[in-house]
Amino acid sequence: MKFYVCIKQVPDVNAPLHIKDGELIQDADRNILNAYDASAIEAALVLREKHGGEIEVVLIGTDKAKETIRKALAMGADSGIFIQADTDVQFDSFSYAKILSTFFADKEYNFILCGKQSQDTDAGLTGSMLAGLLDLPYVTNAVGLEMTGNSLIVKRQGDAGQELIELPSPGLVTCSNDMNDPRIPNLKGIMQSKRKPVETIPVNDLPTDSTAIKTKILGYEVKPAREAGKKFDGEPDEIARQVARLLDEAENVV
């Protein structure tokens, strides 16, 4: 079995940030492996443990994103592909998917795993776009993966409940972080990761047309903060009743 896992480096949403002249500025340069991708890697590792195979991670990003490939290798992936991008190009999900599809065009694999969405933008597009471009069968929002023969049995969180779907090889899955708890690399993993191969491909070596960027970010604005209301501290019986009354009389919502 050959698995590819598409991973992305994203800014840590927990780090303080602010907006200056419509631009998003992070107070600290804190970037992490997208949590959903960490779950995708974990899923692949578990499948490899049970059924054997090989895991290669693919990342498009600038040089500083390389450390995220190392993290994936330290978790246990076998090798990495670093698709090196310029700093000043603002890719959107479609252009990432385009670049990835050119990369995958001549590759052989059983499954491509993606994260269900990027933690910073919550777009959730790249995975199914990639499947569309490669004409692969796919399942999104996976919360469980099992292998039977050459197929994956994917548990998907859908609107009507959880669906069990059979996905033949080759296929693509986007993973939810509800699937598992990604392992934290141990010291041995960190040490091994340095010796694992990482191939660098400049993004311009993967020709894609310039029309691939279909959406543009015009700017950012602060979300009008919700004001903290009133805090009730005291005798539970009393404050509970007080709030219950207020919900009726002041808010009219019960």
Partner: peptide, 10 residues
């Protein structure tokens, strides 16, 4: 370069 490490989260 290949044998010295900074290891976080440990």
């Amino acid at each position: 370069a290949m044998d010295s490490f900074i290891a976080p989260n440990i």
